[in-house]
């Protein structure tokens, strides 16, 4: 079921992200496919996505029309509909797919280079906080259209972000944590990144790598490797993966 066509894939993600109307009832989206979707996109789609992002940054989602995006990309309206059938709503979800995919793609190489859990967390948290800090489109949308953006980051909708975090972090966290600890770890890290992205604090400053390392070393590494994270029956296991017997 992961090998659906690009359009169907986008529909699934559309339902899941509840962009616009017709939300909710779709099957569970394979979030990891966002990265594949991004990598497989043709040049025409990529140009449209970049044009749409520039339009959203300038005018917001609500006021951007398909004509605006076509003009920005230097193509006809008909071309937009041919490359991304379904109009603006579909374009919004394709843009979201691409941004999530881009994030996956750029972070993945950096995270793979980390040799300790501490380095992995510092790289990941710092990288994501820098992305959030420098993402003009996201910041503009949060400021101007909070009613469209913020619900995706609160209450039960955060479960989707947790799925995304799990997909992004699992291959990397699995190098340092037993499989059953990965999901709770990914959720904790997502909470940390989101709270300090939305409400920055001087003591966790992505422009000061030492501050992120203090957060990770003092609070997060113990939190993720504490025996009581797992079921009580596993509480006697060691936290050193090198000595992990299972």
């Amino acid at each position: 079921m992961h090998s659906v066509s690009g359009v169907t894939q986008a529909t699934v993600i559309h339902d899941r992200l509840e962009v616009g109307e017709g939300a909710g009832a779709g099957p569970v989206a394979p979030v990891g496919a966002w990265a594949a979707e991004y990598l497989a996109a043709g040049d025409a789609e990529r140009r449209l996505v970049e044009a749409a992002l520039r339009c959203f940054a300038r005018w917001g989602i609500r006021k951007t029309s398909v004509d605006d995006i076509a003009r920005e990309a230097g193509v006809s309206r008909a071309t937009v509909y041919r490359v991304v059938p379904g109009g603006k709503d579909r374009l919004v979800q394709v843009v979201l797919c691409h941004e999530a995919g881009r994030l996956f793609h750029t972070m993945d190489a950096e995270l793979s280079a980390a040799e300790t859990l501490e380095d992995l967390l510092v790289t990941g948290i710092r990288g994501l906080l820098l992305v959030a800090d420098g993402h003009d489109v996201l910041r503009t949308l949060i400021r101007d259209e909070p009613e469209l953006v913020l619900p995706h980051f609160a209450f039960h909708q955060l479960d989707r972000i947790f799925d995304l975090a799990d997909t992004l972090a699992r291959p990397h966290l699995s190098r340092f944590l037993p499989p059953e600890d990965v999901r709770p770890a990914a959720e904790l890290l997502a909470r940390v990144v989101l709270t300090y992205a939305f409400r920055p604090t001087p003591w966790v400053d992505p422009h000061d790598p030492d501050s992120v390392r203090r957060l990770v070393r003092t609070y997060l590494v113990p939190a993720l490797t504490s025996p009581s994270v797992s079921e009580p029956s596993l509480s006697d296991r060691t936290t050193d993966p090198a000595q992990e017997s299972t």
Binding site: L158, F162, P184, L188, V192, W203, T218, Y219
Partner: peptide
């Protein structure tokens, strides 16, 4: 710092227990 982190995580968990 600990109080800041704990307060944020506590509130995050209340709203979205995951």
């Amino acid at each position: 710092q600990a109080a800041d982190l704990l307060a944020r995580l506590f509130l995050s968990l209340i709203g979205s227990p995951g």
